[in-house]
Lab assay of single mutants.
Amino acid sequence: SFNTVDEWLEAIKMGQYKESFANAGFTSFDVVSQMMMEDILRVGVTLAGHQKKILNSIQVMRAQMN
């Protein structure tokens, strides 16, 4: 498990989005775990492969939080 959203993004090789997530207010796992595709688009993730990777990881995160 990760301590910060930045660490999580690095771990899934999506570190290039750290600033975008932070600027959009997605700075805690409570918020990130609620993200939908529209949120991912809003933070500027436009590549389908990256969207899928982030969404898949969020689903895993949700499962671990319950």
Rank of each mutant, 00 (worst) to 15 (best):
A63R: 10
I40F: 06
M37C: 09
V32S: 01
M35G: 01
G25D: 04
W8V: 01
Y17D: 01
L9A: 01
R42S: 10
A48T: 10
V31M: 12
M36K: 15
G15S: 11
D39H: 05
V31D: 08
G44N: 04
I12L: 14
E7Q: 10
F21K: 00
F29A: 03
G15P: 08
A22Q: 12
V60Q: 14
H50E: 06
N3T: 12
M37A: 10
I54H: 00
T4L: 06
A11F: 14
I12V: 04
Q51M: 08
L9F: 03
A63C: 15
Q51H: 04
A24Q: 09
S20A: 15
E7N: 07
T4A: 07
S28V: 04
G25E: 04
G44Y: 02
V32I: 11
V60I: 14
M36I: 13
K13H: 15
E10N: 08
V31T: 13
M65S: 07
N56W: 14
A48Y: 13
S57F: 10
L47N: 15
F21M: 04
M14A: 03
G49Q: 13
M35Q: 01
D6L: 05
Q34G: 10
S20K: 13
D39I: 03
F2W: 15
G25S: 04
T4M: 06
Q34S: 09
Q64C: 13
T46E: 08
Q51A: 13
N66C: 12
D6Y: 08
V32L: 05
Y17S: 01
D6Q: 07
N66H: 11
S28M: 05
K18T: 06
R42Y: 10
Q59M: 15
S20R: 14
Y17E: 00
S20F: 07
F21L: 03
V32N: 00
T27Y: 07
L55A: 05
L55M: 14
S33A: 11
D6G: 13
K52N: 12
V45T: 02
Q16H: 06
T46H: 11
Y17M: 01
G25L: 04
N66A: 14
K13L: 11
L9Q: 02
M61T: 03
I40D: 00
L55Q: 05
D30S: 12
A22C: 07
Q64D: 10
G25F: 04
Q64E: 12
L9E: 01
K52P: 01
V5C: 03
F29S: 02
K13E: 15
Q59R: 14
E7W: 05
S20L: 12
S28G: 07
S57H: 11
Q16K: 08
V5L: 04
S1M: 15
S33D: 04
F2Q: 06
E38K: 11
M35D: 00
Y17R: 02
Y17H: 04
V45A: 03
N23E: 11
F26C: 06
N66Q: 13
N3H: 11
G49E: 15
A24L: 09
W8E: 00
Q16C: 08
R42G: 08
A24F: 13
M65G: 08
L47V: 13
A22T: 08
E10H: 06
V32P: 00
I12M: 10
G49S: 15
S57M: 10
V43N: 01
S1H: 13
F26P: 00
I12A: 03
Q51F: 05
G15N: 06
D6P: 10
A63G: 11
L9G: 00
Q64I: 12
S20D: 11
A11T: 10
E7T: 07
N66D: 15
F21A: 00
M37N: 05
A11Y: 14
N23L: 14
V43G: 05
T4S: 12
N23I: 12
D6S: 13
S1C: 14
E19D: 12
K18I: 09
N3K: 14
T27Q: 08
E10P: 01
M37S: 06
T27D: 08
T46F: 11
N56Q: 14
F26I: 12
E7R: 06
V31A: 13
A22H: 12
G44L: 02
K18A: 12
A22K: 15
M37T: 06
V45Y: 02
M37K: 08
Q16E: 10
V43A: 14
S1P: 15
E38C: 09
T27N: 10
N23A: 14
L41G: 05
G49I: 14
L41A: 10
K13D: 14
K53M: 15
V5G: 00
L47F: 10
E19S: 13
V60M: 13
N3S: 13
V5W: 03
A24H: 14
Q51L: 08
S1E: 11
K52Y: 12
I58A: 03
Q64M: 12
D39K: 03
V5P: 04
G44D: 02
M61V: 06
N23S: 12
M35A: 02
L47A: 10
F2L: 08
A48N: 10
N23K: 14
T46P: 04
M61Y: 05
V45F: 02
E19H: 13
G15M: 05
Q51R: 10
F2H: 08
D30T: 12
A24T: 05
L47P: 06
N56I: 11
V5D: 01
Q51V: 12
F2C: 09
T46M: 10
I12C: 04
F26L: 08
G44I: 02
A22M: 11
M14V: 04
V31C: 09
V32R: 00
W8S: 00
F21E: 00
G25Q: 05
S1N: 13
M65Y: 05
N56Y: 15
N56K: 12
G25R: 04
V5I: 10
V43M: 07
S33C: 08
F21Y: 02
F26G: 02
E10W: 05
I40G: 00
E38I: 10
W8F: 04
Q51K: 05
V31P: 04
V43Q: 01
E38F: 07
E19Y: 09
G15V: 06
S33I: 14
Q64Y: 08
G44R: 03
D6M: 08
A48G: 08
M61G: 03
I54P: 00
V5M: 03
V45K: 01
E38W: 08
S28I: 04
L55V: 05
M35L: 11
S28H: 08
A63T: 11
E10S: 08
F21Q: 01
D30Y: 14
F26R: 03
R42F: 09
I12G: 03
V32C: 04
R62D: 05
V60W: 12
N56E: 15
K13W: 09
W8C: 02
Q64P: 05
M14E: 01
G44T: 02
N23D: 10
T46W: 07
S1V: 14
A24E: 09
L47C: 11
H50F: 03
M36R: 15
L47S: 12
E7A: 09
F2I: 08
F26E: 01
A24S: 09
L47H: 14
N56L: 13
N66V: 12
T46N: 09
R62Y: 07
S20W: 06
T27L: 08
